[in-house]
Amino acid sequence: MFSVIPGFRLSLGITLTYLGLIVLLPIAALILQAADVGFWRYIAIITSPRTLASFQITIGAAAAATVFNAVYGLALAWVLVRYDFPGRRLLDTLVDVPFALPTAVAGLALTALFAKNGWFGAPLAEYGIQIAYAPAGIVCAMAFTSIPFVVRTVQPVLEDLDADVEEAATTLGASQFRVVWTVILPAIFPAFLAGASLAFARSLGEFGAVVFIAGNQPFRTEIVALLTYIRLEEYDYPAAAAIAATMLGLAFVMLLVVNLIQAWHQRRAIREE
């Protein structure tokens, strides 16, 4: 390391101390607490029917929410980058609403919308569709809170896409569909995959928005984060530690996946240059 710019030690010192105290210390404490539980007890907690059911519900709902956001996010990114129309800038700003709006407020709003007498809930109830206090409500809450991820990762890549390749393909007689399939999609695919993984990871951990709308019935609409919270309230600290540590492990796996995708993306970008 050599640089004429001063302040390396000071800034690195501040960064490491702060991260150590605020981020690493609690994570280490959680891992220690979970290690204290012991292997067989940990297995027993994680494989108990209620815990397994909550994992199944959480992962299933997160996957469904991610599928929605993959399609909607891709369409949003495309429309924002490729077309100019009145209100485009406003639409671009609206994408960030789920980031800026507190999750509890989002949960409250979605519950009001999808309740039996709500704006969406009332017409849906006529067809016998129930969203609030049902698994579909969890999907809605997760989908809302993770809207920005796919859009914001795909948008810059789509902006940088070279018009020449598209034009060449069109000149050579490729149909529009074929250009999208063989030129555009491969170019944005790593970014798209990274965005979708981020949305999925965020959905797995979502709590605030979900607890309002889910109804929180064990085995039906109880998510992992809520089960952790319930175990804490019951002073069952080993169970809380075991479940929270498993969620932490899942988060690390997702982080690894996102980083591998991004590394792949960067390697490809360098090769193309």
Binding site: L30, L204, G205, G208, L232
Partner: peptide
């Protein structure tokens, strides 16, 4: 490491602080 808190569920963060 700087981005790590983004990936961690707020509930997990709360539990970790409790410990």
């Amino acid at each position: 490491l700087i981005e790590l808190p983004f990936s961690i569920s707020p509930i997990v963060a709360g539990v970790a602080y409790l410990f």
